[in-house]
Structures are given as C-alpha cells and as structure tokens.
C-alpha cells in the first residue's frame, strides 16, 4: 500500500500549484483508479502474464535443462519441439484421455452436486452440519485425499477390496488404479467426488433464490414434485449448470495433481499435463514441455470456443 499511497494523496494538492486548472472530480477518480490498479496489474502481469507469453516462446526454441544456463532468452526459432511432441508415442491418446477425463469428471461432479443441492435444499435438523460436511472433499488437501483413496482401493489391505470380497462376493481383489479397464474410471470418480461440492455450492445458492410463490403456484395447479423439478426448477438452474460445466471443464482439462498422485499417469490415465511434467523432468526437455503445454492450451481454447458457440445458439433458439 505504501507505493500506492502517493498517487491519490498528491493529486488533491496539485490544484494549489499556480498556472494549473483544478482537476475535475472525474479526472481525479480516473487518476486514483490508475494509481491503485497499477501495482496489482504489474504483479499479475509479472507472475502470470509474462510466463504465459514465455511458454509460447520456449515452445519454439531448443532448450534443455542441462544447457539452460547457456541459452539466451531469444535464440533461434525452430519447429523441432512441436515435431518431437507430436511424434512421441501416445500424443493422440493423451489428448483423448484428457478429453474423456474432463468430460466425465465435469458431468459427474455437476450431477452429484445437483442431487446434493436438491436434498439439502429444505431446512431439516442438522442441515448446517450436513452442508459443511459435504464441502470437505473440496477443501481438504489433494495429497491427503488422493493418498486415502489409494489406501482404500489397495488390493492388499484396502477396505474397499476387503468389503467387496466379504459382502459382495468378489472372487479376487480389484487393482482399481493399476489396471487399464478401471483406472481411468476410478480417476474420474475421484475427480467427481472431489469437485461435486463446488457445483453443490453454486446450485444450492441458485435454488434458494427461486421464489417460493413460483413453486406454490405450480403445486396449486397440480404439478407433482418431479414435474415441478423438470419444468420449473431445472429451467431456472440451466444457466448455472452451463456456467459450471464451462468452469469445471477448463479447470479439469489442465489438472495435474489428481491424476499424477493417484496413478502417476499409468494404466491409460496419462493426461496432457502429466505428459508436460514428464517432458520437463524425466526428459529434461524444456522446449518439448513448453510445446506440449501450448498444444494443451490451444486444444482447450478450441473446445471452449466450440462450447460457447453451441451454447450461444441454444440460448437463441
């Protein structure tokens, strides 16, 4: 705050100087605004803006971790990185896995969140406590919850396999996180579990804003509970659901921690961000990592643009 304090404090003093017209209130406001926003903007650009642009630059340069100290900021440009990224086995597979993972997790978390919001909507005893408990998966550290899931699903001493064999009659323990047929689904389920509270919060807030008279009127007209949901609540919720779908999709598409911690990208769960990390650390190939990150960002932009276009058309009709 000390740096920002100068601007606005100085400006009222200025009109006293000879030969200067006093500043209008409007111009004073504008100056104060610029002075206040400048430091924030500067830091945001420095810690986020510059790195984003730099990633694009790095994607077209030959940079390796070992030679990092020697390479200049703007060396010669090359398309080799992109070529290497595309021709390293699994390029298309990871993109497809990322898409499946994001769509599955987004839909799963919204569906769970919607059901949760509907059942917690009306007051009952202990409702505040229930609501707080439902938010736990979202606030808890990802490392801790991923580790708990790993242990719970462990074929040897995990509770899920123990109960599955005791109560559900499974013949053999299921290695959920290490076999191809279940790993991706398990990761999607984890993601839906961890992020349904996010959807739950948004949807609950919207549900509580629906005027009570509206539902009362529908009831008087003979609409049953499911009809009231289908024709009254759902249309009210649709804009929020559409926004949630967009937000969750963007966040999940680039997510790294969850998949990396659960499976390390094994058993057909390698998403693009895990691949970026591998290029960066295991191969120490900064250029290729940057190129892969750019591919990820581009894919995201294209998908979001498609979604927005589709959604805008839906709303018009």
């Amino acid at each position: 705050m000390t740096t920002t304090a100068k601007g606005p404090r100085r400006s009222p003093a200025r009109p006293a100087r000879p030969g200067r017209r006093p500043l209008t209130l409007r111009r004073r406001e504008s100056r104060a605004g610029l002075a206040l926003v400048a430091p924030t903007l500067l830091v945001v650009v420095a810690v986020v803006g510059v790195p984003i642009v730099w990633t694009v630059v790095l994607a077209f340069q030959r940079v390796r971790l070992a030679t990092l100290r020697k390479t200049g900021l703007f060396g010669e440009f090359t398309l080799d990185n992109l070529d290497r990224v595309i021709h390293t086995p699994g390029f298309a597979d990871t993109l497809w896995t990322t898409l499946l993972y994001s769509v599955g997790a987004t839909l799963g978390s919204i569906a769970l969140g919607l059901v949760a919001a509907l059942v917690v909507r009306r007051p009952f005893r202990g409702r505040a406590l229930v609501r707080a408990s439902l938010l736990l998966p979202y606030v808890a550290p990802v490392v801790a919850v991923a580790f708990v899931w790993q242990v719970m699903l462990d074929p040897q001493f995990g509770i899920v396999n123990d109960w599955g064999r005791r109560f559900l009659g499974w013949d053999a323990p299921v290695p959920f996180l290490s076999q191809e047929s279940t790993a991706l689904w398990t990761v999607i389920a984890f993601e839906a579990w961890r992020y349904f509270p996010f959807a739950f919060l948004f949807l609950l807030a919207r549900l509580q804003a629906v005027p009570g008279e509206l539902e009362e009127a529908a009831r008087v007209d003979g609409a049953t509970p499911t009809q009231r949901f289908r024709h009254l609540l759902l249309p009210q919720l649709m804009p929020v659901i559409a926004l949630l779908a967009l937000l969750r999709f963007i966040m999940t598409f680039t997510k790294f921690d969850d998949v990396y911690l659960l499976t390390g990208g094994a058993a057909g769960t390698e998403v693009v961000s895990v691949r970026v990390y591998r290029f960066l650390t295991a191969r120490a190939d900064v250029g290729a990592a940057a190129a892969q990150a750019v591919v990820l960002a581009l894919a995201l932009v294209v998908l979001v643009a498609l979604y927005l276009r589709f959604f805008a058309r839906e709303r018009e009709s």
Binding site: P51, V63, F253, T254, A297
Partner: peptide, 12 residues
C-alpha cells in the same frame, strides 16, 4: 489460466 502452462517458464 492453467498453472501447468505458467510452471515451465517459472521453472526456467
């Protein structure tokens, strides 16, 4: 904006 994209230059 995804943090994995920001991570690489910061790492560098």
């Amino acid at each position: 904006f995804p943090s994995i994209v920001v991570a690489i230059p910061l790492f560098v």
